[in-house]
């Protein structure tokens, strides 16, 4: 792995750590389109049909905030949008799911994609609605733990 990429990964770690301020990507930033394309990209990365699209929208808003804080990331996003959709919302949404996947594959080795993938992953899989979908029940401290709530309720094992 070359140094630039290593540093970029470090940057993504650091970005994930700074508490994000109030900036956001302006609606008229080229490539942003109110985040609709990016939000759909996030969905294509981790598509759960039974998960509310609001989850993807919320994750995209956070992503937009991080991108808006960095001129470098904003420039990278604009490049990515150009490759994905020729900067046109209509083009993007005219693609089939397969077409979208192929478009994303074209950028999947870029640092920007790695950044988006990392943020999308934490955003989607930290979301309580995703937890509900997957059957993860999260904190049980307020209910006295799982000790009386199914930590040993398995019933399909052979004797």
């Amino acid at each position: 792995m070359d140094i630039a990429r290593r540093e970029f990964l470090q940057l993504t770690v650091n970005l994930a750590l700074v508490s994000l301020g109030g900036h956001s990507v302006a609606d008229d930033t080229p490539g942003w389109h109110g985040g609709k394309v990016l939000s759909d990209v996030v969905y294509q990365l981790f598509p759960h049909e039974r998960l509310s699209r609001d989850v993807y929208m919320q994750v995209t808003e956070q992503l937009g905030d991080s991108i808006g804080q960095s001129a470098e990331l904003t420039a990278m996003m604009n490049n990515a949008m150009e490759v994905l959709s020729g900067n046109s919302q209509e083009n993007w949404f005219a693609l089939s799911e397969r077409g979208k996947t192929e478009a994303i594959e074209k950028i999947q080795h870029t640092p920007f994609f790695q950044f988006v993938l990392n943020e999308a992953l934490s955003g989607v899989y930290r979301h309580p609605l995703t937890w509900e979908l997957l059957g993860y029940e999260g904190s049980s401290l307020e209910f006295g733990g799982y000790i009386d709530r199914g930590f040993n309720d398995i019933d399909w094992l052979p004797d």
Binding site: G150, F151, N152, I154
Partner: peptide
């Protein structure tokens, strides 16, 4: 596995 495990509990 063929059935539920819920490995997060515990």
């Amino acid at each position: 596995m063929p059935g539920q495990v819920n490995q997060h509990r515990g």
